[in-house]
Simulated scan of single mutants.
Amino acid sequence: MAINWIKRVFVLATILAVVLLLPFIASAAPEAVDFSKSAIVAEEINLTPQHRQQLQAVRQRRNRDIQAMLDSSQRTELAKTLHAGNSFNQALESLDLQPDQQEMLKAIVQISNLKMKAISARFLHN
């Protein structure tokens, strides 16, 4: 139980460090995040089950990190919007995020995309 808490704190601290140390990630007026442009879709390339599982794990971690940065009312609104049939990206765009939350969201998505690209690159080189 304590290990999971430590992992979450470590991930959030890492994300915060990225935001603080790389100012080009965080901008004064963040753009909307579009998962479809940079996320790797497992169906587009012939991935092994192991690589699909690794990509799914990255996406699940990304979603947990995003949930963790939202307050309870934002999580409720996100759940309602997703339940209404909207995509994850559309649901996030509908939330009234604070500027620091927008910066954190961009950092989480960029880190996740880098991880997914690394997994895909390992697959392509095998």
Score class of each variant (00 low, 15 high):
residue 74 Q to I: 09
residue 67 Q to M: 11
residue 91 A to Y: 00
residue 74 Q to N: 09
residue 52 R to N: 07
residue 11 V to E: 15
residue 16 L to S: 10
residue 73 S to D: 15
residue 16 L to V: 02
residue 94 S to P: 00
residue 56 Q to H: 12
residue 76 T to L: 11
residue 29 A to I: 08
residue 76 T to S: 11
residue 119 I to M: 05
residue 65 D to W: 02
residue 68 A to K: 07
residue 91 A to D: 02
residue 60 Q to C: 03
residue 49 P to F: 04
residue 3 I to L: 14
residue 116 M to T: 06
residue 85 G to Q: 05
residue 63 N to L: 07
residue 125 H to G: 04
residue 25 I to Y: 02
residue 13 A to D: 06
residue 42 A to H: 01
residue 112 S to C: 12
residue 14 T to E: 15
residue 111 I to Q: 15
residue 64 R to C: 07
residue 26 A to H: 01
residue 69 M to S: 06
residue 115 K to C: 06
residue 5 W to V: 08
residue 17 A to N: 07
residue 4 N to H: 09
residue 107 A to E: 05
residue 49 P to V: 04
residue 72 S to V: 14
residue 97 L to Q: 10
residue 11 V to S: 15
residue 35 F to R: 05
residue 24 F to M: 11
residue 111 I to N: 11
residue 70 L to M: 08
residue 16 L to H: 09
residue 46 N to M: 04
residue 36 S to Q: 11
residue 25 I to V: 12
residue 66 I to R: 00
residue 120 S to N: 08
residue 58 V to T: 14
residue 106 K to P: 00
residue 38 S to K: 03
residue 93 E to V: 03
residue 45 I to A: 06
residue 13 A to G: 01
residue 73 S to V: 10
residue 67 Q to P: 01
residue 86 N to T: 06
residue 23 P to K: 09
residue 41 V to E: 13
residue 26 A to M: 03
residue 27 S to Q: 08
residue 63 N to E: 15
residue 31 E to Q: 13
residue 126 N to P: 00
residue 64 R to A: 15
residue 20 L to I: 13
residue 110 Q to M: 15
residue 27 S to H: 02
residue 110 Q to D: 15
residue 68 A to F: 05
residue 35 F to S: 02
residue 1 M to A: 13
residue 93 E to Q: 06
residue 39 A to R: 05
residue 55 L to K: 01
residue 63 N to K: 07
residue 98 Q to P: 01
residue 37 K to C: 02
residue 78 L to S: 02
residue 122 R to L: 12
residue 48 T to F: 01
residue 116 M to W: 01
residue 48 T to P: 02
residue 22 L to R: 13
residue 88 F to C: 00
residue 65 D to T: 08
residue 49 P to K: 10
residue 112 S to Y: 08
residue 20 L to W: 12
residue 42 A to S: 13
residue 94 S to N: 07
residue 34 D to F: 06
residue 75 R to S: 05
residue 55 L to Q: 04
residue 71 D to R: 08
residue 91 A to R: 00
residue 12 L to C: 06
residue 30 P to G: 11
residue 10 F to L: 14
residue 116 M to N: 01
residue 92 L to V: 04
residue 71 D to K: 08
residue 19 V to F: 00
residue 114 L to Y: 07
residue 80 K to A: 12
residue 68 A to S: 14
residue 118 A to W: 14
residue 24 F to W: 11
residue 29 A to Y: 05
residue 85 G to K: 04
residue 125 H to S: 12
residue 101 Q to S: 08
residue 26 A to E: 05
residue 33 V to G: 03
residue 30 P to S: 14
residue 39 A to G: 02
residue 45 I to Y: 03
residue 62 R to N: 10
residue 68 A to D: 13
residue 47 L to A: 07
residue 6 I to V: 12
residue 35 F to H: 06
residue 33 V to T: 09
residue 100 D to G: 00
residue 50 Q to L: 08
residue 85 G to M: 07
residue 77 E to A: 14
residue 41 V to W: 07
residue 11 V to D: 15
